[in-house]
């Protein structure tokens, strides 16, 4: 079953007097439960694609569907709902709230989604798997980069999103921590069937995924 269907997606930024065509007709289908790597040079449009998929910015034209829901016609409120319920983000810079503990960083994502019931057994297992179950009362600055990124992953999936978008999740990590995070993403994907899309420009990182597509000048190859 296809969880993502993208057809002829375009995104043009107006930068001063020039139009920057970040996406020039992207086509992509991702199956539910897939682990997809997106590789490509800096500036090729990878992040832009993820931002549109994640409802952070609207597309210029084309059609895009997540779990059967069309994003093309979504307004700001609709995109907010999409971010809240259907998408989990993992960024290169972790983006944890610095004043909150690990537990509260995860809980605020649930609070935003309007959920207050305690964590279920599956999620507790995920925390064990991520190796942060014992660090729930720490603040982000008391954690290593690898640990922070694993907290970010936990936060991203706590609301069981349809898709997990990871934009260069290992970009700031050394090889050991990178491998751990990549291993965990693959493990999560296999164990829980979580659909994962990951941007990377490291071929070794891409090897953790089931399938790799290439972004080149705003076009996707090998899709």
């Amino acid at each position: 079953m296809a969880i993502i269907e993208i057809d002829n997606l375009r995104k043009t930024f107006r930068s001063g007097d020039v139009d920057v065509h970040a996406l020039r007709g992207v086509n992509l289908v991702v199956q539910k439960g897939e682990f997809l790597a997106v590789v490509g040079r800096s500036g090729s449009g990878k992040s832009t694609l993820f931002h549109i998929l994640g409802g952070l910015t609207p597309p210029t034209s084309g059609t895009i569907k997540i779990d059967g829901q069309s994003l093309t016609s979504l307004d700001e409120a609709g995109r907010t709902r999409l971010r809240r319920n259907s998408v989990g983000f993992v960024f290169q810079k972790y983006n944890l709230l610095p004043t909150l503990t690990v537990r509260d960083n995860i809980d605020i994502a649930r609070d935003i989604a309007g959920r207050s019931e305690p964590w279920d057994a599956t999620f507790l297992e995920v925390l064990e798997l991520l190796g942060i179950a014992q660090k729930l009362d720490r603040k982000p600055r008391q954690l290593s980069g690898g640990e922070q990124q694993r907290v970010a992953i936990a936060r991203a999936i706590v609301n069981q999103p349809a898709i997990l978008l990871a934009d260069e999740p290992t970009g700031n990590l050394d090889t050991e921590n990178s491998n751990m995070v990549l291993d965990l993403l693959r493990h999560l994907n296999k164990k829980t069937g979580q659909t994962v899309l990951m941007i990377t420009h490291d071929p070794e990182a891409a090897a953790f995924a089931d399938r790799t597509v290439q972004m080149r000048d705003g076009e996707l190859h090998g899709a």
């Binding site: 971010r83 709230l97 605020i108 935003i112």
Partner: peptide, 16 residues
């Protein structure tokens, strides 16, 4: 600013 961006990326609306 950044923290507000994080909250919004997590799906927080203007009301939140």
């Amino acid at each position: 600013t950044r923290e507000i961006g994080i909250l919004k990326a997590l799906g927080a609306g203007p009301g939140y």
